[in-house]
């Protein structure tokens, strides 16, 4: 009996001394851990929105009408978060913007660089800088389109079971006319159950 206890104790001690483990998770095969918003949702939503914008063809129409120029867009600060979760919705917009720039679909003005750029321009307009090499005032490019949207959810909880429905809508709006140039939505519903016993 004493030997058995000693053996168990040794196993426990060894288990406690095991090195800390890390591992990579494949983003393509990663699945949601529970009914809340997760990283796999971010990827699914942004992928579907990117595919939809490309398929819409408004970028090509714009180029045809404007001598081959790409449409210039600006992001809304974030997607309007109407859920009951603290979600960084800017990540969805950032992913879509990155893909559209990389694939040559559109150009974007940086909505978050405005203040810093203005500070720099003001600084460079002073005598501290070489006029010939300083950035010139009055060359900001105005956006023609705003990319915006919202994310909302309906959550139902009963006992240990949670069901969560998400609806994400995104639009591209023409600044001059307020007409919606492109719109699409992604929706999904996921359930999860907690284990009844915890240790």
């Amino acid at each position: 009996m004493t030997r058995l206890f000693a053996a168990i104790l040794c196993v426990l001690l060894l288990a406690g001394c095991a090195p800390k483990q890390t591992w990579d998770i494949d983003l393509d095969t990663d699945t949601a851990e529970d009914a809340d918003y997760t990283s796999s949702d971010l990827l699914t939503i942004s992928d579907q929105m990117i595919t939809s914008i490309k398929a819409n063809g408004f970028s090509q129409h714009y180029a045809a009408a404007h001598g081959g120029q790409k449409p210039v867009m600006i992001l809304a600060r974030a997607l309007e978060n109407n859920t009951d979760e603290h979600i960084d919705t800017r990540m969805i917009l950032d992913k879509v913007r990155t893909a559209l720039i990389k694939d040559g679909v559109a150009q974007f003005v940086d909505d978050q660089a405005f203040d810093m750029a203005l500070d720099q321009l003001n600084m460079q307009a002073t005598d501290l800088y070489d006029d010939r090499k300083a950035a010139q005032l009055g060359r900001f490019v105005g956006a023609h389109y705003i990319m915006r949207g919202s994310i909302g959810n309906i959550r139902k909880m009963e006992g240990r079971e949670t069901r969560n429905y998400f609806l994400i809508t995104m639009t591209i709006v023409d600044i001059e006319t307020l007409l919606i140039t492109w719109i699409d939505e992604v929706e999904y519903k996921r359930g999860s159950t907690k284990g009844s016993v915890r240790w």
Partner: peptide, 10 residues
């Protein structure tokens, strides 16, 4: 939230 609706043997 984690422990709601669960029981612990201990």
């Amino acid at each position: 939230d984690e422990i709601e609706g669960t029981v612990s043997v201990g």
